[in-house]
Amino acid sequence: MKKRILFTMPSMFMGGAERSLLGLLDAIDYNKYDVELFLYRHEGEFLEFINPKVTIIPEINKYKTFDVPIVSLLKSKLYLFGISRIISKIFLKLHCLLSKEKEGVWMHMQYTSRFLQWILPNIPGEYDCAISFLGVPDVLVNKINAKTKIAWIHTDYDTLNPSRRYDRLVYSKIDYIANVSDDCTRKFLKYYPEFISKSITVENILSSKFLEFQSKEKITDFKENSIIILSIGRFCEAKNFDNVPAICKLIREKGLNIKWYLIGYGTDEVIIRSKIKEFDMEDNVVILGKKINPYPYIKNCDLYVQPSRYEGKAVTVREAQMLCKPVVITKFATSSSQLKDGYDGIIVPMDNQGCADGIAKLLNNKVLMQQLSENCAENDYSNSQEINKIYEIIENS
């Protein structure tokens, strides 16, 4: 008899965690496991790419209330959710005032989730394993019936700024906590050493066949007669795209004719555009916006750059390596777990001048550029074997 696995996910909008989930779902042996996916919202560019063997649970309207504007909720039949969201904001402010802790995105998510739990319905069904793949895992703890529960963490815990007390309360009720790299696991355990026995590392699983197929699509956005640099990610503080115009200008001042393309979307787009204008880079830094299929852009760029301030493990870097592209990343806290400096990518300083110098040095070294590509071609970055860690947990539970 097949064992049942449930994944929960907020939505399937374009992002690294969403692409990682697609790879994981493709790697599962469906002869042995029945897999279901519960999405809070049936929305997102990646919905159509979910493995057809996965059963998508019908949408439950009340789970959409995490993101709906509070005013809209108050005017609807779901007004109790709006009231709960208001109360969560009040308690969050009080917590920060009394504890002197800084309010952050993760803490905001914690309080929103906490104060919605009492009116959210249970997710139907009984499962051998349930996995909260992204976000605060309250729903996994309170609303799902499963023998084994796994919470996934996709980022460097140093950057999350959560309520530690609430984290401990939730994670104490979960069987396993999966981080996407050994560095991220170490960062997590620095704050919660008591969870060492339930902490595991499961690297992002990516589908090489999917990437190769998608990368063959024709594109016309790139301009000829220039060196093409590409960066992909949400337009947010973590990705550091607001410094791309300054870095681009410094590289061009070295005589390199580059065009730097940005794929993504987010709240920082206004800041990025203002920086493009400030540094007079309108012709050289190009925002392409959302792209459901970013892979032909990776395939056709000369250099992929991830200039992040921090990362867990950047899925886009792995994807660029899988498509045999030279890669540059900044020296963020977990950068050493992302690539081997000088072998399948280059790590450059975080500051704008150091970053520009490092990129320019690589672009001027055609031999090294070619060697990085060849080294990437010799490695399997799909991490398909990581699925065995999930199998082991399920079979031994």
Rank of each mutant, 00 (worst) to 15 (best):
C96P: 06
L189H: 04
V317R: 12
T65W: 06
P349Q: 05
C96I: 01
D268W: 08
E43R: 11
W106K: 11
E59N: 11
D156A: 10
I263G: 04
I292P: 07
T65A: 10
V348Y: 07
G266P: 04
K149L: 05
K102V: 13
K366L: 11
I394M: 01
L6M: 05
Y33Q: 08
V348P: 06
S226W: 03
I232T: 01
F210M: 15
I123L: 04
K325L: 04
N122S: 14
S163P: 01
P58V: 14
K143G: 07
S84A: 15
I90H: 12
G289H: 02
Y79F: 15
I228Q: 12
T220P: 00
Y304Q: 11
F188A: 07
A314G: 02
N300F: 12
K3L: 13
F235E: 00
I196N: 13
V367S: 14
N240H: 09
K313N: 02
K149N: 05
I359Y: 03
L189I: 06
S84L: 15
R252P: 10
E224W: 03
I83K: 15
R19E: 01
G289V: 02
W152T: 02
I219L: 06
I276A: 00
Q385G: 04
L6Q: 07
Q371T: 14
E103Y: 08
K290F: 11
L80M: 13
L78Q: 13
K187H: 11
P121W: 08
Y166G: 09
V202K: 12
I329H: 04
D351F: 06
R165T: 10
D221C: 00
Q385Y: 13
N293L: 04
M350I: 13
N179K: 12
R165D: 08
C301V: 07
L98K: 14
F38P: 01
I57K: 10
G135F: 02
Y192F: 13
M322E: 00
L98F: 14
W106Y: 14
K100T: 12
D26W: 03
F38T: 08
V141H: 00
I247T: 03
E386Q: 11
F38I: 08
S208F: 15
L189R: 06
V286S: 02
Y297E: 02
L98C: 13
R273C: 04
E43K: 12
E36F: 10
R164N: 13
E395K: 11
F115D: 03
E253C: 14
A360E: 09
L140P: 01
I347G: 06
I227R: 11
D167K: 01
R309H: 14
L92Y: 11
S231D: 09
N142G: 07
I227T: 13
I298G: 01
A356K: 02
Y261M: 04
R252A: 12
K2I: 12
G16F: 04
S382V: 03
T334V: 13
P294I: 03
A27C: 15
K32T: 09
E101F: 03
R168G: 10
P307E: 09
D182P: 13
L94E: 07
F222G: 00
V68M: 09
E48Y: 02
V71T: 10
M281D: 00
I394R: 03
